[in-house]
Amino acid sequence: MATAAVPASVNIPGVAGVSLAGLMFQPAGEPQTAIVLHGATGVPRDYYARFAAWVAEARQAAVLIYDYRDCGHSAQVPVKQARATMADWAVRDQAAALELLHQRFPELPLEVIGHSLGGLGLPFHDRGDRVVRMVAVASGPAHWSRHPLGFVPKALAFWYLAGPLLTSLLGYMPGWVLGQGAHLPAGAYWEWRRWCITPGFYRRDWGRRLPQPDLSRMKGRLRLVAIADDPMLPPPVVRDLAGFYPAAQVENHLIEPAAAGVASIGHLRVFSERCRAVWPVLAGL
């Protein structure tokens, strides 16, 4: 069995003086590729650490994981004072992480693994044209009407009842509502809400709150990975992400819980140790 990669702490210079706390995993030998893992909304980087260590050896890769601004190890103020938005995370922070990886390994192919929010930002990134492959996991243009019927009441409550009420009262979205324990800055919740209750998702913000993306930038391989029992980003929504990468070479993968040897996976659990059997699909193998 290969020795697990040991991570080194990395400081990622961000926009406007923001610093992101990263971990870099290196394989035992010389890396053959460089991979950045962009996490899902509100999911701490440490959740992805075991997967990243495994990928470093399985792919002979340098693998970077990190926390978005105002989250986890990158948080510099209490969440109630945080001003981060989804645009900060998807556009600015993801681009900063990709840029650092390029600068550290300028001669290596660049790859991206994006979980949920992590698969949405590449059309905005200057280095997007250097990415030879992206694996987008449970990522796509969400809308409340496209959830499975049984999940719609929960989604509507999150966007129209409990979510707005708690965020307004507390000044942030408490993590227990999301089921993962990480609080969200109010600005991130409100922007996320706007995207998910609007047809077209974040298209309405292009050229306004978001830069105008270059949809031709990503010409590499794009693997869209859907989870069969994911109620938040069901398979048809994941497949729709291809529309945001029209120049990419797209392949679709569907992961059934049985393939991971578990009864259920949902939106977040696929990177956990219990789903290790399907990690090769997430790693691009």
Rank of each mutant, 00 (worst) to 15 (best):
Y245H: 12
A56N: 08
E256V: 00
Q76H: 11
L165F: 13
V55D: 07
D229S: 11
T33P: 07
K219F: 01
A56C: 09
G220Y: 09
A62G: 07
G284D: 08
L161Y: 02
P44A: 13
V135L: 04
L224V: 07
S216D: 15
P44K: 12
S216T: 15
L108I: 02
Q81E: 15
G220N: 08
P13K: 08
W206I: 08
G200P: 05
A277I: 01
S168H: 13
E99D: 15
A283N: 10
L210Q: 05
A157P: 00
V152G: 04
P27H: 10
L149K: 15
R203K: 14
R209K: 12
R193Y: 02
L166W: 06
Y48T: 05
A186M: 05
P7I: 01
R274V: 04
A84M: 09
V278G: 10
R193I: 03
G114F: 06
A96F: 01
T3N: 09
R223S: 15
P211T: 08
A34M: 12
R104H: 11
I12R: 03
A49T: 03
T198E: 10
L156S: 01
P174M: 07
H102R: 15
F51A: 07
V79K: 10
Q81P: 00
R69L: 05
W159K: 00
D70F: 02
T41L: 13
A8E: 14
R203D: 14
Y189T: 03
R45T: 00
Q26D: 12
L170M: 14
A228H: 09
D126F: 00
A75N: 10
L23E: 15
A4C: 07
A40V: 03
A248I: 12
L233R: 01
W144M: 08
H102T: 10
P106H: 10
A34V: 13
L169H: 06
H115E: 04
V225T: 03
V135G: 11
G121P: 11
P141L: 07
I265M: 03
N11H: 04
P13A: 05
I265E: 04
A61W: 01
M218L: 13
A182L: 11
S145N: 08
G121D: 09
A155D: 04
Q60W: 00
H143M: 05
P109I: 00
A247V: 12
A82S: 13
